[in-house]
Computed example of a mutant assay.
Amino acid sequence: MAHDGEELIRRSFLDSAANFTALAGMAPQVAAAAERMIASIRAGGKVMFCGNGGSAADAQHLATELLGRYLRNRPALPALALTTDSSALTAIGNDFGFVDVFARQLRGLGRSGDLLVAITTSGNSPNVLEAVKAAREMGIGVIGLTGQGGGALRDACDLCLCVPSAHTPRIQEMHIAVGHLLCELVENAFA
């Protein structure tokens, strides 16, 4: 039994390593996404994040890295996760439907010049896609973070970072790594 577990561990680490090696080829797209975030903040905008489940946790994590600090002390940067207000999520979900939980918040909190980072491993989460649609209507830029292929999100964004895996756990590993790099690049611009 332990042997099977050890083999699973080895395969998982090797799969992750191969994915990260492939992800290195996306350096230009990641740098471009960071530049969009920097430009939005410099122009007085904010960065908003949304996603479901593990992607919701990533949204909260990344917003906090910008609002607080990633590695260096510097001024707080305007960022928020549309995943953290349980009263808003449950009220909007109850009154309008779960598909509107992010779009409704975006319509109340966002403005032209802001930036939405939409996170979905499949690229097909209806509530994330609805938030992207709302962002488009409002003049809010959109960066997508998804898995291989990109789903419907791929063509709905200004820039979509489709990490090179179709396996949810591996996608999520790469999403947080990309997110950390985005935060570091943004932080470096303002530190």
Score class of each variant (00 low, 15 high):
Ile140Val: 15
Asp95Gln: 03
His167Asn: 13
Val128Ala: 05
Glu130Arg: 15
Leu80Phe: 01
Leu181Thr: 13
His167Leu: 09
Gly108His: 10
Arg154Pro: 01
Ala81Asp: 07
Gly141Leu: 08
Cys162Thr: 10
Asn127Tyr: 04
Leu116Asn: 08
Gly93His: 06
Asn127Thr: 08
Leu161Cys: 03
Gly110Trp: 10
Phe98Pro: 00
Arg104Cys: 01
Asp100Tyr: 14
Leu109Glu: 03
Arg111Glu: 13
Gly123Asn: 07
Arg136His: 09
Thr146Phe: 05
Leu129Ala: 12
Ala135Asp: 11
Arg154Val: 12
Arg136Cys: 03
Phe102Ile: 09
Cys160Leu: 00
Ile143Gly: 10
Gly179Ala: 11
Pro126Gly: 12
Cys157Ile: 12
Thr121Ala: 15
Pro78Tyr: 11
Thr90Ser: 14
Val142Ala: 07
Gln105Trp: 01
Leu109Phe: 12
Ile143Met: 11
Ala88Ile: 11
Gly93Cys: 09
His175Lys: 11
Arg170His: 13
Ala152Lys: 14
Glu130Tyr: 00
Ala177Ser: 13
Leu182Trp: 09
Gln105Ser: 04
Thr90Tyr: 02
Cys160Ser: 04
Ala79Arg: 06
Ala79Gly: 07
Gly147Glu: 06
Gly149Val: 06
Val178Arg: 04
Asn124Tyr: 02
Arg111His: 13
Ala152Tyr: 01
Leu77His: 12
Ser125Met: 08
Ser112Val: 02
Ser86Leu: 14
Thr146His: 07
Phe96Arg: 07
Phe98Gly: 15
Leu115Arg: 06
Gly97Leu: 05
Arg74Cys: 11
Val101Lys: 01
Ala131Trp: 00
Met174Ser: 08
Ala88Lys: 05
Ala91Asn: 05
Gln172Leu: 14
Arg104Gly: 01
Gly97Ile: 02
His175Arg: 11
Thr84Arg: 04
Ala76Ile: 00
Gly141Gln: 11
Ala76Gly: 14
Val101His: 02
Asp85Thr: 10
Ala91Ser: 15
Leu129Asp: 10
Asn127Ala: 07
Asp155Gln: 15
Ala177Thr: 14
Ala79Asp: 08
Gly149Glu: 09
Leu129Trp: 07
Thr90Phe: 03
